[in-house]
Design a protein around this nucleic acid. Structure first.
Lengths: 162, 162
DNA sequence: TATTGTTATACTCTATAACTATA
DNA sequence: TATAGTTATAGAGTATAACAATA
């Protein structure tokens, strides 16, 4: 061989050959999550609600008077991390921090009318985003996927975060 | 009602009531991904390979002489972001940047013996991590999950990143 | 002592834009 | 003109540790 034969294979991209990575759930979860998240952001717009802000608003609207600690627990994040999210939602006028009679440590999150309306609109957008993105999934496939993901989520309790 | 009845519901955590979020694939993907990733890090150890470093090493070992651009494309990240990862792997002595005769812009990634051995060990750890984490999944369930995630990943081409 | 909300801080991951050297 | 690697930079997202107020 005089260098002419091998040079080509150096730059070729191996695409048929499946790598070890493709067999891992973790790797595929990550890649799939990035795709869905990017589509979420693209559809909700540049200045739209970020996924985690949407999630927090969702729970605040559905469970009015939820405390920040309870909301953080629900979202699976630290309560310190929720402060900025609630700040954002309060600054946008979508909820208020309200005093709770009986426990002055706590601040209940109360969605405003604007918050409820914005959430209703965003919810429709997010539903449309997932409907479009999973248009080629049968109802059974989507259901199976959700159930398998829930089965993974059930493991959260097994290995406590702290 | 004299305030005694309602106060209790303020602090209660609603757990039976499923929120809108639970029905979204994106939200469940994220939550599931975090659980798997945390377990990955816990098992590979504090100073072990981070997921993305493991992934890069995996492809470098399996496709020796792959270029950085090709590797970044495979991993779905920008090539600027790969620099730090390759720096790490080179610093650890797991691969070398090698000149390619014929195109002096390119640097082929060549795994060292230490890199190959470390990868072999890490691969076993990662397999053990997933085997343990998905011990309660049947072969069919795991296969179904992987196929559904791949079906999502197939959408990456539809909506180009740039 | 324990909990709630908060701040300060740092770290990881990632993207964009611009540069250089090559092609 | 286009591509490969690089740097600088900034922005999310998150965690840990500590603190004040309150229980």
């Amino acid at each position: 061989m005089d260098g002419k034969v091998r040079v080509q294979t150096i730059k070729d991209e191996p695409s048929a050959n499946p790598s070890d990575l493709e067999s891992f759930v973790g790797y595929n979860l990550k890649r799939a999550y990035v795709i869905v998240q990017n589509d979420f952001r693209a559809i909700l717009g540049e200045d739209g609600l970020a996924p985690r802000v949407f999630s927090a608003l969702s729970l605040a609207v559905q469970y009015p008077n939820i405390t920040q600690s309870a909301l953080a627990r629900r979202l699976g994040i630290e309560r310190s991390g929720l402060v900025a999210i609630v700040d954002t939602l309060e600054r946008l006028g979508y909820l208020r921090r309200a005093l709770v009679p009986g426990d002055r440590r706590v601040q209940a999150l109360v969605p405003t009318d604007a918050g409820k309306q914005t959430y209703a609109r965003a919810l429709n957008l997010v539903r449309a985003h997932e409907d479009r993105l999973f248009a080629d999934f049968s109802a059974t496939e989507k259901d199976t996927l959700l159930n398998l993901l829930l089965k993974i989520r059930a493991k959260e309790d097994e290995r406590p975060r702290s």
